[in-house]
């Protein structure tokens, strides 16, 4: 066999390696968004499928922007979007407040302890997400573990309303997404040169000063990655507000789900999804940039 065909075969093989996952993602990741976009400009009708076609039989465009107009003027939807942003942002900050000291402590532990502590952070992530949220239902219930314990201690006489509140949603969000905050923070804190902090302290900096002037700027890429990894999926969360939140807990993921499955308004559900996606494009691009930079730095 000549060297030429060998080389040709290798090139072919490289193309094949790129093409298979590429085509898969084009069909099953990108194309679906085009379809959502198309359906979001239709009107709901009682038919199968329950929306109007984009073009009529003569080829005239039937697309409308009514769904978007409705979303952007309806008070309930605007409030729901804003509430989702504020809940996801609050949960992100709570994750950071709890996750940063934890990641710091893990990164500074001895090497044997460190790998066990890290394992203990990752372990819950492998256990079913749904069951972890369910576990909190048992704790927060009116007759649940926390209320029973507090009543047994005599701190309260009647059960506190813990479940079906915003408080319960925050607990669920922080509990579920905490590992996503700790891992990128740990990765960066572990690599950090401790001598820099010591130098700052030796030169007379107060510990808080050393933290804000040295540790925090160095840890920033990890903080940004961790915050985005928590904020973006929390925005669209469905299970947590459904199981732990009250009926008035309007998070956008839940509204989308109900619009689709309960009201069967596919076009409106599609436009809810598109608007949510538009809100997340900026943070997603940010995340992509930071990951790319990270990969570039490691190489």
């Amino acid at each position: 066999m000549s060297a030429g065909t060998d080389k040709g075969r290798d090139m072919l093989w490289q193309r094949f390696t790129v093409a298979i996952p590429y085509i898969w993602l084009l069909i099953f990741f990108l194309a679906p968004f085009a379809i959502i976009l198309k359906i979001s400009t239709a009107d709901p009708i009682i038919a199968q499928p329950p929306f109007t076609p984009t073009f009529d039989d003569g080829g005239a465009l039937l697309a409308t922007a009514d769904n978007y107009k409705f979303l952007l003027t309806d008070k309930l939807y605007i409030i729901t979007y804003l509430k989702s942003v504020s809940m996801a942002a609050t949960a992100t900050i709570l994750c950071l407040l709890l996750g940063f000291p934890m990641a710091y402590g893990i990164a500074r532990a001895g090497s044997a302890a460190r790998s066990i502590l890290l394992l203990l952070v990752i372990l819950p992530f492998w256990i079913s997400f749904l069951l972890r949220v369910y576990a909190w239902m048992g704790l927060l219930n009116n007759h649940g573990v926390i209320n029973n314990f507090l009543m047994w201690l005599g701190i309260i006489d009647a059960p506190l309303q813990l479940i079906y509140t915003d408080f319960a949603i925050y607990i669920g969000l922080v509990y579920s997404y905490l590992p996503f905050m700790i891992l990128p923070l740990y990765a960066i804190l572990e690599r950090m040169d401790l001598d820099l902090v010591d130098a700052a302290l030796d030169l007379g900096a107060r510990p808080s000063q050393a933290f804000w002037d040295v540790t925090w700027p160095l840890a920033r890429p990890g903080v940004i990655a961790g915050c985005l990894l928590v904020f973006i999926p929390a925005m669209g969360e469905y299970v947590i507000p459904y199981l732990l939140g009250g009926p008035e807990a309007l998070m956008i993921g839940r509204v989308l789900f109900d619009e689709f499955f309960v009201n069967r308004d596919w076009p409106l559900a599609s436009s809810v999804a598109i608007v949510l996606l538009m809100m997340l494009v900026v943070p997603i691009v940010f995340l992509q940039r930071s990951q790319a930079k990270d990969a570039g730095g490691a190489a």
Binding site: L30, P32, L229, S270, A273, I284, L287, A292
Partner: peptide, 29 residues
């Protein structure tokens, strides 16, 4: 390609689920 690889990591599940269902329904038609 790189964008399509990283996006599903953070894409809210409701969006991924809805978009794939609508794809499957369109393909079926």
């Amino acid at each position: 390609f790189a964008g399509m690889i990283i996006s599903p990591l953070v894409m809210p599940e409701v969006i991924t689920g809805l978009s794939l269902l609508l794809l499957f329904i369109s393909l079926q038609q």
